[in-house]
Design a protein around this nucleic acid. Structure first.
Lengths: 197, 197
DNA sequence: GTCTATAGTTGGATAGAC
DNA sequence: GTCTATCCAACTATAGAC
């Protein structure tokens, strides 16, 4: 682990920061804790990053990349619209539910970014990325089900992202998975009504 | 301002905490900053509250109370379901949009509570309160429009709360009010389809 | 009841030895 | 490039004078 080129050292530290922040919260992700997690000394972090904000910006990047990597739409034999849309949403939701800590961290990063001008870009980049991913997913779903959307997908994408976020937040609070699934099902129903042949 | 009975002193400090946290974020709401905001010395805060967590718990209460007070459903002459539901949601949304800082603080409190066992109750209480308020609002709306819901209101309430939260979060990030209004309109549409005479 | 003073941590950041 | 040592600011919390 010694004498790494800075690029690799940075990557290592970003992963360490992501790990500790997901596990213990953004407040616990101090430079000290991150250095300890990575097994390097305190000074190394300051050597590799301008300051803590730069490191947090990279964490924002990392968490987004980690999520984007793949929304493989499951192949379905007899594709009616509701089934396809439901499967698409279920895939995304499962990915969100799978990593509780990372999901919570995502919310923490957003609120932190909304208060700290130096992190502002993290929040906007995250939202834009999510909106784009949702739009692509909706397009793919419509293509797979051989239907078209009756309203602009940018609008539907925002509704989808917002509802998924809200469902996730409530789920983080009360852990009521059945209720979350039902709410998701309601979103599926609504989206289905926004299609035509 | 001198020699207040403790009950009033506590109320004053809670309001000060709410003010500084709404304005500058939960991280900036240190005991020092709160004392300064209230114009009292540092020791007074520790004299009135067990510790910072107790004060934050009270802030959670205060922000909830501040929101619950009044969801006056506007009276509408010729009540069809969509109009009534839309008006109800618009009222709530307007209240959320009105106080940006408090809305953001609400998210910050939730994430903080999800990481800190001593604050856990703040998140659950907030969610329960919101779900209950949504349920009551939905019931009132149905009564006003002389319709009935075709699915349990507890489910619709969760969907409503989740979607509103998600819309608010996205709006805090990109400030796109028209997009938020459109998403809200989509929620109205969906809820309307869940009614019958 | 209130204030000053201070204890005791913990944070980000840097200097200088190696 | 890395580590130790250290600075300095800010935090929560308490003790003790008034």
């Amino acid at each position: 682990m010694d004498r790494l080129p800075m690029v690799e050292r940075r990557a290592q530290l970003i992963q360490a920061a992501l790990a500790v922040a997901s596990r213990d919260g953004i407040e616990a992700a101090t430079v000290r804790a991150i250095a300890a997690e990575a097994g390097v000394s305190l000074g190394v972090v300051h050597y590799c990053f301008e300051d803590k904000n730069e490191l947090l910006r990279e964490v924002g990047e990392a968490i987004a990349v980690q999520r984007v990597d793949r929304v493989d739409l499951p192949l379905i034999p007899d594709p009616d619209a509701r089934t396809v849309i439901g499967a698409a949403l279920a895939t995304v939701w499962e990915a969100m539910r799978e990593r509780r800590g990372a999901q919570l961290l995502s919310f923490e990063l957003t609120t932190a970014a909304l208060r700290n001008p130096e992190l502002r870009g993290v929040a906007t980049a995250q939202l834009e990325r999510n909106l784009l991913a949702a739009r692509e997913l909706l397009d793919e779903a419509a293509a797979a089900a051989v239907v078209r959307w009756t309203v602009p997908t940018t609008l539907l994408a925002r509704l989808t992202v917002a509802t998924l976020d809200g469902i996730a937040l409530a789920w983080l609070v009360d852990n009521d998975t059945p209720a979350a699934d039902q709410a998701l099902s309601a979103l599926t129903d609504h989206l289905t009504t926004q299609t035509k042949r």
